[in-house]
Design a protein around this nucleic acid. Structure first.
Lengths: 143, 143
DNA sequence: TAAAACCTGTGAGCTACTCACAGGTCAAAG
DNA sequence: CTTTGACCTGTGAGTAGCTCACAGGTTTTA
């Protein structure tokens, strides 16, 4: 398989394949005749694995580590479980933060309905934003 | 005020102050004696405003635009309302995505409790991730 | 007076790609 | 058999919003 073939096989940009190769996640062999990279079924598996792991929030260094451990015939799975659980906690933190932000935003938007636009006078820049947090009732801030 | 003073006043890194200055969000004057930047109360207001706007998801170019319009004595607020509403929609999309991811992750974690670790054998790398989406029941995927 | 703490601008590093460029290779159409 | 178009190669830059490192100048403190 050449770059485009494996890229299509995993549904990614050929440049991503080249990038992953540079980063050491894929290890194609080389055709000495034309200097082209040659990827096999194992590379495709690794690439598909990498994309799934990326969806889960694993970083490229983490993925490379897992791939290397798998190569050394160690079992990477306990490590996966660990990173996975950490990542889950992070995702939940992100959700909570975004929900808080959304609440503040919707509250601010409704508060702004009653505020005039107000031309800046050299002292205030835009009342809508300068007072956005003060205009949000406490009750809306805590989820 | 020198860099460190305004940075402390807004609770940011001095390098961020320098960066915002380079980006044209702050316009300090210069002390010709020692070539130091001098920030005044207006700069501090602009910086605090910029940080609040950043929390709301405004980009630096957007913030600069608002600041410039305020300087020209135009009212930036209708523009703020627009960008704000777009940003709110984005935040809600992000929340939905993350919630979906969280559901898939928790479902996968509980499914993995019953799966052995499995040493890689040259065909599979880590069953936990390779089959993570297949192991998640449909019902868990749709919010 | 000497050391510590500040200031300056510039340039690189972070993430995970994506794209542009210049030049080499190959398959099929004319 | 040649040309055209689609592919391949590596390198370098761009993305956002900082953060940090560096080398050299200035001010404050002990």
């Amino acid at each position: 398989m050449k770059v485009k073939d494996i890229a299509i096989g995993a549904g990614v940009n050929p440049d991503t394949v080249r990038f992953y190769t540079r980063e050491g996640l894929l290890k194609p062999t080389r055709n000495p005749d034309n200097n082209y990279q040659h990827y096999d079924a194992e590379d495709l598996r690794r690439l598909r694995f990498a994309r799934k792991a990326r969806q889960l929030g694993f970083s490229l260094p983490e993925i490379r580590q897992i791939l290397e451990q798998a190569e050394d015939h160690h079992s990477p799975c306990p490590m996966v479980r660990d990173v996975f659980q950490q990542r889950l906690a992070e995702v939940e933190r992100e959700i909570a933060e975004l929900q808080q932000l959304r609440n503040r935003m919707t509250a601010a938007l409704s508060a702004w309905q009653d505020m005039p636009d107000g031309t800046p006078d050299g002292h205030t820049i835009c009342r809508l934003i300068e007072h956005w947090d003060e205009s949000v009732p406490e009750s809306a801030i805590e989820e």
